[in-house]
């Protein structure tokens, strides 16, 4: 059995619903080598739905937020004036912390002249783990009503394996949560579909990965087999389409039943297994090309 170096490969897309999670899970199982899969789509973690074993371990995840020691607080208001996120309010005899607005920068504690602020943990979600065959899934799940997606993603992201391949299922978009999930990856697979929405959102994702200097390739899902707007965009931009997954009703139906639809198809499955060698070649290539050097 072949094994892979502990690479970190992000599976991302600008648009939601292009098949990111489906690809991540199918790829993880198709490889048949030990893989760690991180579900960083913490607002809507779905990878676990493919695991019949059910989520086993569940650990609360917290961030550090300020707490005011009223024995020491002089109500000077320095903390509130410093906080760019408006997370503190200090009156003549009152001081309040709005944990949900805190960005955990630590500034209030630094500027307090009376050492009246300490940091305490505040639960924002949970980390859940399940293993099945060769795949170990670690997912983050944001508690409903919480808004700290990026901090939770950064915590889950630290679970990347040091001795085996890690696949990262990223949240859609190009804002903070997506950046938090792809950051630190060796390579990114961008999943898209041959529609104008798919193309529009792909362009945004490409722009983002170029800013982050992460090498990437395209997986074209629901491909009609013919030349599409995604093909012509990739030609113009010199981007590789690594693989095309055909648009078939059977695949859509199998996906809707929660089955590993790509693994069921021999041809797609063997193409998934060829992805890793291709990616490794591309990373080596981009390490010597000036454009691809990571900071």
């Amino acid at each position: 059995m072949m094994n892979y170096p502990p690479l970190q490969i992000a599976i991302a897309s600008g648009k939601g619903g292009t098949g990111k999670t489906t690809l991540a899970v199918n790829l993880a199982f198709a490889l048949e080598v030990p893989v760690r899969l991180l579900d960083c789509d913490v607002e809507e973690p779905n990878a676990h739905l493919y695991f019949y074993a059910g989520l086993k371990e569940s650990v609360p995840v917290s961030v550090q937020v300020p707490e005011i020691d009223f024995a020491l607080c002089q109500f000077c208001g320095d903390c509130s004036r410093f906080c760019r996120f408006n997370a503190l309010a200090v009156g003549k005899k009152t001081a309040l912390v709005f944990k949900e607005l805190c960005h955990n920068c630590g500034g209030c504690k630094l500027v307090c002249p009376h050492q009246a602020i300490r940091e305490v943990p505040w639960v924002i979600g949970k980390k859940e783990i399940v293993s099945q065959d060769s795949v170990e899934l670690i997912q983050g799940c944001l508690d409903i009503g919480r808004v700290q997606a990026s901090p939770l993603i950064r915590i889950i992201r630290k679970e990347a394996s040091k001795d085996k391949l890690t696949l990262i299922d990223c949240p859609p978009g190009t804002t903070c949560p997506m950046i938090a999930a792809v950051e630190g990856s060796d390579y990114a697979l961008l999943v898209t579909e041959p529609t104008p929405f798919g193309l529009n959102d792909l362009k945004l994702a490409v722009e983002t990965l170029r800013v982050l200097k992460i090498p990437f390739g395209i997986i074209l899902n629901r491909s009609q087999g013919k030349d599409s707007i995604i093909h012509s965009y990739c030609r113009e931009e010199g981007i590789n389409i690594l693989m095309e997954i055909p648009d078939r009703r059977q695949i859509a139906e199998a996906c809707s039943r929660g089955e590993l639809a790509f693994c069921q198809d021999e041809e797609i499955r063997s193409q998934l297994r060829e992805l890793l060698p291709t990616i490794m070649m591309q990373i080596n290539f981009s390490m010597v090309s000036p454009e691809g050097v990571r900071p």
Binding site: R84, C105, G107, L110
Partner: peptide, 22 residues
């Protein structure tokens, strides 16, 4: 690195050379 900066101002506060601004 703009992509990671959240604009909290802690670096501005800590800089002894007043080299940073928001």
């Amino acid at each position: 690195e703009k992509a990671f900066c959240e604009g909290c101002g802690v670096c501005v506060w800590g800089c002894p050379a007043e080299a940073i601004e928001l």
